[in-house]
Design a protein around this nucleic acid. Structure first.
Lengths: 284, 284
DNA sequence: ACTGCTATCGTACGGCGTACGGCAATAGTA
DNA sequence: TACTATTGCCGTACGCCGTACGATAGCAGT
């Protein structure tokens, strides 16, 4: 076990004193309250649209429940409130039916998640014939699709790797690669490499976004002098040239590699580098 | 909403008949049983090692519970049985203490997950000075670390993006990039691109592994003629040149892009392409 | 009038995270 | 030595979760 030592080293922090503990708990509670407030605000935005939909369509009970209804409702809940809010009971309430009624149409929550995931796969782009442009368009669309439904990444991990829409997109991706006239195996691998980069980028970005939002709320719940102290501490920690000689340069030159403003730019940067690599190796 | 039509199209499947439904349920139950059997077998493998550890160390109650004990136990459970098995009650049982005792040492399950994640970050490799070799070594170690603890990906999404070990590794990654003598921002972005590729690869691979295992168990629980029918159906579906003209080539040429045997090779392929891109753009 | 199928739902079970308050052991102080 | 405060641990309870099971009510075919 070579990481044994590192583990212990990472956990040397001792238990806090009782009052520090109580204070921390209070802060957490406050942060949670902030989060819930934000959630409610977010829901309020969605509510009008939902109500409209409810009014312009015939009442559900008249025309009967369908799989599509359930999936739509689940997606709406996930979009508005995130994965944790997606429960069978909640979806049923949203549709005005009993919780167990859903199980007539879907076998389990897992199956529902699969259906949700496949339902939000964006359509592949039109192909121009320029492999590089097409591949880039592919990557952008896939990324945008995932960022529009950030909850999807939570299900991506547990579900099966392909649904029908996913299959069609993969096929289109292979089509885009025809311009390079590779053998089919190499083409599949190149396509997979692009998809891999996109998946990683989306993963990182969603993680960033969530953490950013969370940190904001937590900070909002703290007294300003605490915030200032924390910021200073954080900066000093990173700026310690003995511990992190290279990270220090980032701080002193005021470069924030995780800045939200450069998110798109960073994605394009990596994508470009990757396409360069493909071109260098395969373009005739 | 441009994906509205696709969603409906993807969900046109009608409700199943009663007996098909019952049969499907039975199959699911059988598959679950298989899964549980496999889980128990897996646990049995781990149990001896754990017992040994339990015996060679002083009993916990004598020396008192620590954060590190809790994190270790949680990691052990996660390694043996996956994320779902990691519950506060279970960890406590594993340690021979009450469930609520854990909360003296960790603030919440979320904090525990963060600690687990940081604890299994592998150490960065020694640097050779050859940027390309160093970057590749980095990527390989990061990947291996995650594959050794496949549950980590589940927590990666929800947790904050950095812990102490992660910070140190990032610093080392920047160090490896010094050979290219880039400005710090570009270096950070290049490093991030590598990390992104690795994250995506790990995500895909773990997804693949899980699905593979799951499919195996499901198939094992089905009568052989059912299996054969399913396989034939699946192949015909993919082989339909009208629907998936390019996927068909994969089937006819007997290329399986998701084959477990080529997992390492595929990772190296993409990594190589990416490094080519970096070299093409930045190597002097 | 009777039968059987479709769709819906109420109840209940076991498990989850964790708030809260109590308790024993220990340490600090007079 | 006696008293007190702190630390570490834990039993109970609450409100969630997914979902098994069986009971309907409406409807179609005979």
């Amino acid at each position: 076990m070579e990481d044994q030592e590192r583990r212990e080293q990472a956990l040397e922090a001792r238990a806090l004193s009782r009052e520090a503990r109580a204070q921390a708990r209070e802060m957490r509670t406050r942060a949670r309250e902030q989060r819930e407030l934000a959630r409610e605000r977010r829901i309020a935005e969605h509510v009008s649209r939902d109500k409209e939909r409810r009014l312009t369509q015939p009442p559900l009970r008249a025309r009967g429940l369908t799989r599509a209804d359930i999936v739509d409702a689940a997606i709406a809940v996930a979009d508005a409130e995130g994965t944790e809010a997606v429960t069978m009971r909640r979806i049923a309430r949203e549709l005005g039916v009993g919780a167990m009624s859903l199980y007539w149409h879907v076998a389990s929550k897992d199956e529902l998640q699969m259906l949700m995931l496949d339902a939000v796969q964006p359509a592949a782009p039109e192909l121009s014939g320029d492999w590089r442009a097409d591949l880039a368009a592919f990557a952008r669309i896939a990324r945008q699709g995932m960022l529009r439904h950030p909850w999807a990444i939570d299900y991506l991990i547990s579900g099966p790797p392909v649904g029908p829409n996913d299959t069609r997109n993969t096929d289109q991706l292979l089509a885009a690669l025809e311009g390079l006239s590779l053998d089919i195996k190499t083409a599949a691998w190149v396509g997979m490499t692009i998809a891999t980069y996109v998946a990683g980028a989306v993963l990182r970005e969603i993680q960033e976004i969530r953490w950013h939002k969370d940190a904001e709320l937590t900070l909002a719940a703290m007294p300003p002098e605490e915030v200032e102290k924390l910021r200073r501490q954080w900066e000093e920690n990173l700026n310690d040239p003995a511990k992190y000689p290279h990270m220090a340069r980032l701080v002193t030159e005021r470069v924030d590699p995780d800045s939200p403003e450069t998110r798109d730019e960073r994605f394009e940067f990596g994508l470009d580098v990757l396409l360069d690599g493909i071109a260098a190796r395969f373009a005739r």
